[in-house]
């Protein structure tokens, strides 16, 4: 067992085998887990909002899907990963209060998917939407992503 590295809201972290990165209690936020299985480098970004250009307050680029993922990729490359080897798994984007129409969670997921496409990172699996909170973690030994919710069994994607 390696170390457990915690990622707060609007933050991101990189880890290498055998460490794990975890982000607690994602609601409408999305956790983006990237992995390079050749070099065993993992990264997790916890974004709050979809688009930086819609915001008045952009001092922290790790807050937004369209600016955070690129930073994560850069840090993973610095840590010995290769951009062409990266794959993605995502979780979160829930609608906690059951609003109708397109919610901030939906917009976050859309923006994350567009950004992954732009960076040519294939999306292998996702667990998004619905109305409950999720804790997400990625294990740098094998890139497995575990999702826990209070009223559901935990699952691995």
């Amino acid at each position: 067992m390696g170390n457990k590295i915690v990622v707060g809201i609007s933050d991101l972290k990189v880890a290498k085998d055998p460490d794990t990165i975890i982000s607690y209690a994602l609601g409408s936020c999305v956790g983006i887990c990237l992995y390079d299985k050749v070099n065993k480098v993992a990264g997790l970004s916890h974004i709050l909002l979809p688009y930086s250009d819609a915001s008045k307050e952009i001092s922290n680029p790790m807050k937004f899907a369209d600016t955070a993922i690129e930073i994560l990729v850069r840090q993973m490359v610095q840590a010995g990963g290769k951009q062409t080897f990266l794959t993605a798994k995502i979780a979160g984007g829930a609608n906690m209060f059951g609003w109708e129409g397109e919610t901030v969670g939906d917009k976050n997921v859309t923006s994350v998917c567009n950004e992954l496409k732009r960076l040519r990172i294939p999306l292998l699996a996702s667990d998004v939407g619905l109305n409950y909170g999720r804790t997400v973690s990625i294990d740098a030994t094998d890139g497995s992503v575990t999702i826990k919710a209070l009223t559901k069994d935990s699952k691995v994607i």
Partner: peptide, 16 residues
């Protein structure tokens, strides 16, 4: 639900 997940909503609305 989890307090962190619930707080995402106001955080997102006011996070801009």
């Amino acid at each position: 639900d989890m307090v962190g997940a619930i707080l995402n909503y106001p955080a997102a609305i006011f996070g801009e």
